[in-house]
Design a protein around this nucleic acid. Structure first.
Lengths: 332, 332
DNA sequence: CCGCATCATGTAAACGTTTACATCACATGA
DNA sequence: TCATGTGATGTAAACGTTTACATGATGCGG
C-alpha cells in the first residue's frame, strides 16, 4: 500500500537503481534525471522503508542509551543532552532507563542489539565489568560512570574522588575537624569514589582515624534518617558531607527540625548540585557535576567511534567537578 | 558474519521455516524439533535480525515519544513512566524531545515514521491542530496536552482549568480578594487553560473585572521579574497564583528579597507540584498533576489502539488535578 | 487395503532497499 | 573509421526474515 521505490521508478520512467542513487545523493546521476526523480518522489510522498534499508546497509541510524535508575534532573539533563546531539547528527535515540541492577541493564543491552548502531551505557555498579563482557564485540559503545578496570570500551567518568577531596578540603579550610560523611548505596561506584575522596582528604589532615561514616542510599529519606542519628550523637560532628544533594537536603530537614542550626552548629555539604540545592535554606554548598557535558562528551566519543571504528584508544577520560560554596558551609 | 536463521536451520537439520515457527512459538511444530531448534539457537547465540523481521511483518516493536521542551522533573517522570510500561510490554522506546515549536515536532514525527508502531505526542501548542493533520493516517497515536478540537486521535489532557479554578477558590476561601496571576507563555495550551480557570473562579466571586495578570513564560526568571514588579506595585495583590511552580519559586525569591512576607503579606501558589515546591521556605501551595499517570494512561491507550485498531473512539479524557495546600498560602 | 483428513515439515516467494556488474551511448584519439 | 575510455543507466542479486502453499507421512474409517 505504501509507495515504494518501485512506484517512484515507474512514475519517473527510470530504474529503481537510479532512484536509489538520486535519493542518496550519489554523483553518478544526471542532474536532469535527479530532479525528475526527486520531483516524483515528493509528489508521491515517497518515504524510504527504514527496515529494508537497515537490512541491507546494516545501519539503523539509531543509537541506544542504557541508563540506571537515575532520578529527576540528572536523568532529564542527560537524555536531553544526548537527544539534542543525536538529532543534530540525524540519528534517532532509543532509550532504556531505570535499570536497578546489572542484570536488567544487560537484558536491555541485549534487547537493543541489532536496533542500534552504537550504545551509550551508564552503569554505576561496581560489578559492571561483567556487563562490559556481555556487550557484543561488534557494537561500538561508550561507558559512563563505569569502573575503568581494563574495559575494552572508551569510558567517561566524573571526577568523584577529586570533587570529594576538594569539598573535604574546603570544609577543613573552614576550620572543621570532625567531618562526617553520609555515604551512598553499597556497590555504587560514584558513592565509593566520593567516600574514598573524603577519607583521603581527611588522611592528609591526619584526621582519618576517627572518621565518622553514616549509612545512606542516595535518597532524601536516608539523609533524613542520618540527620536524626547525628542529632542524637553524644559528640556531634562540626560538618556533614553527604554523598549526594538529596541526602544533604534530607539531613538538613532533620537538623532544622531538631533545632540544630546550619551552618552555625553544623556545616553541611552535598554533591551533584541539583537545582534544589539553590532553593533550600540555607543554600547548599555542593560539588557541581556537569551532567549535560558528560552526556555530550560521551555522545561525541561514540560518534567518533562510529565514523572510524577502532581509531581511538579505549582510554578513560575523567571530567572535572568544581565545588560550589554556598551558605550551608558557612559562606558568610 | 552474524549467525542467521539459515545457520540455525542447517545446524538443527531442519528448514528455515521450522526454525521460524519454533522461535515464534507457533503450535505446528513437534515438541521434539522445537527443543532441538531452541537448543541449537542458544548454542549458536542466534539473534533474529530485527530489520528483516520488520521488513516483512511491518512491525517494529517500538513506540515513539515526541515531547516538547519540558523541563526537569516533568520530563523524567514522563519518560520513565513510559519506558517502564513499554518494557513491560516488550516494546522499545524511541524518544525525541525538546521541540520548541510545532514545526520541530512535525519534523520529528516525520522522521519517526516507519520506525515505530505507534506514537505518543505531547504538544501543548495552541496551533497544534496542524500537527495532528500531518500525522500519518495509518500510524496509531495518542495525544497528550493537546487542543481537543475535533482531533481524530485519542487525547489525554490534564485538568488545567479545573485545577486553576480549585486553587483560585482556595485562595478566595482564605479571604484573599486581589488575586494576581503570573501567566505562562503565549500560545501554550496549559498556560491558557490555567489562566482561564483563574479568571472563571474570579468571575464566580465577581472579581474578574480588575483581575491582575502578569506576564511570564514558565521560567524561574520570569517569575522573579514578575515578583519584582509586584513589589513595586502601588496596590499590591493579597495573593499571587503563578501558572507553574518554577515561576512561583522565582516570585517567592523576589518577594523575600524585598522584605515582603509570604504568606503574611502576600499568599503564593503554584502549579505542578514539582519536588522543589516542598523544599522552599515557606513550602509552596500548588496543584498536583500526576504526570506519571498521564504518561501511563496515554501509553495504555496507545497499546489498546495497537492491539485492536479503531476499536476505541477518539475521545478526549481529562485527568483530574488536586490542590496541595502548604504554608505559602497561609497553611497555619 | 484404499481414500482421505491431519499434521509436521519443506520450498520458495515476498518484503523494499542497495549495489556489483552489465550494458549502452557517446566522445575521444589515433 | 575503429578501438577505447567514460559515464549514465539498467538488471538482478543480496540482505534475513515470515508465511502461503506444496509435499509427504501417518492414522483412521470403511
Amino acid at each position: 500500500m505504501a509507495v515504494t521505490i518501485k512506484d517512484v521508478a515507474k512514475a519517473a520512467g527510470v530504474s529503481v537503481a537510479s532512484v536509489s542513487r538520486a535519493l542518496n545523493g550519489r554523483d553518478n546521476v544526471t542532474d536532469e534525471t535527479r530532479h525528475r526523480i526527486l520531483d516524483v518522489a515528493t509528489k508521491l510522498r515517497y518515504r524510504p522503508n527504514d527496515a529494508a534499508r537497515s537490512l541491507i546497509t546494516k545501519r539503523t541510524q539509531t543509537i541506544g542509551a542504557v541508563l540506571p535508575d537515575l532520578h529527576g534532573e540528572f536523568f532529564s539533563e542527560l537524555i536531553r543532552g544526548i537527544d539534542v546531539a543525536a538529532r543534530a547528527q540525524g540519528l534517532h535515540l532509543l532509550v532504556s532507563s531505570s535499570h536497578g541492577d546489572v542484570d536488567e541493564a544487560t537484558a536491555a543491552i541485549r534487547a537493543m542489539q541489532g536496533r542500534v548502531d552504537g550504545l551509550l551505557v551508564m552503569s554505576p555498579h561496581v560489578d559492571a565489568s561483567f556487563l562490559h563482557e556481555s556487550l557484543p564485540e561488534a557494537l561500538p559503545a561508550v561507558l559512563m560512570n563505569a569502573p575503568q578496570d581494563h574495559s575494552r570500551f572508551p569510558t567517561l567518568n566524573l571526577d568523584n574522588h577529586g570533587g570529594a577531596v576538594a569539598m573535604t578540603r574546603h570544609l577543613l579550610g573552614r576550620g572543621h575537624r570532625r567531618i562526617a560523611m553520609i555515604g551512598g548505596p553499597a556497590g555504587n561506584l560514584d558513592a565509593d569514589e566520593r567516600r574514598r575522596g573524603w577519607l583521603d582528604a581527611l588522611g592528609e589532615a591526619s584526621l582519618a582515624r576517627d572518621a565518622l561514616l553514616l549509612d545512606g542510599d542516595f535518597s532524601e529519606e536516608s539523609g533524613y534518617a542520618a540527620g536524626k542519628r547525628i542529632v542524637a550523637l553524644a559528640q556531634r560532628p562540626d560538618a556533614v558531607f553527604a554523598a549526594n544533594d538529596m541526602m544533604a537536603v534530607g539531613c538538613l530537614i532533620a537538623l532544622v527540625e531538631s533545632g540544630v542550626r546550619v551552618p552555625d552548629d553544623v556545616a553541611l555539604a552535598g554533591f551533584d548540585d541539583v537545582p534544589i540545592a539553590r532553593y533550600v535554606t540555607p543554600q547548599l554548598t555542593t560539588v557541581r557535576v556537569r551532567i549535560a557535558d558528560l552526556g555530550r562528551a560521551a555522545f561525541n566519543r561514540l560518534i567518533a567511534e562510529l565514523e572510524s571504528p577502532g581509531s581511538l584508544p579505549a582510554r578513560t577520560e575523567i571530567l572535572p567537578c568544581e565545588i560550589v560554596v554556598r551558605a550551608s558551609s558557612g559562606d558568610a
